[in-house]
């Protein structure tokens, strides 16, 4: 990470120049999250097909199992990260000044809401179900 940030001049770094204050790390983080998301999304597609047309009980039992809940949680977290990074790039490309600041705040807020809903839902599903009882 430090190697990438060294590609900017000290003055540029001090002034926070460019659309994003830490563009090089941002760029790398976007690719890393994409690389991790690729196999996870494929898994997600297979699980959507697996659950298509199933009732609530079956879906709850699915989500309550660790081997499903773990990748689902990871999928939610990485989706949040990748979406935030990507939307920030768009904001930095098309908006300037206060509008950009406002957009960035909105993106962060939306990302937090997304993660909060995902985490709370998963936690509730896992905790309200004792896997032994319902399988």
């Amino acid at each position: 990470m430090t190697r990438l940030s060294d590609m900017r001049t000290p003055l540029a770094r001090a002034k926070g120049l460019g659309g994003l204050p830490d563009g090089a790390e941002h760029w790398t983080a976007e690719r890393v999250s994409a690389l991790l998301l690729a196999p996870l999304s494929l898994w997600g597609v297979t699980q959507i097909l697996r659950l298509a047309g199933r009732d609530r009980e079956t879906i709850l039992a699915w989500a309550g199992r660790v081997q499903n809940a773990a990748p689902l949680g990871l999928l939610i977290a990485l989706t949040a990260r990748h979406a935030q990074l990507g939307l920030e790039v768009i904001a930095s490309d098309y908006a300037r000044g206060w509008r950009r600041v406002g957009l960035r705040l909105l993106i962060r807020l939306a990302t937090l809401v997304f993660v909060a809903i995902g985490a709370a839902s998963l936690a509730r599903i896992i905790m309200t179900r004792t896997p032994e009882a319902k399988q």
Binding site: F114, I117, G118, A120, S121, L122, I125
Partner: peptide
């Protein structure tokens, strides 16, 4: 999608 998951948990 995550809202749907929330409804599922609710």
């Amino acid at each position: 999608a995550v809202s749907w998951l929330g409804a599922l948990a609710q």
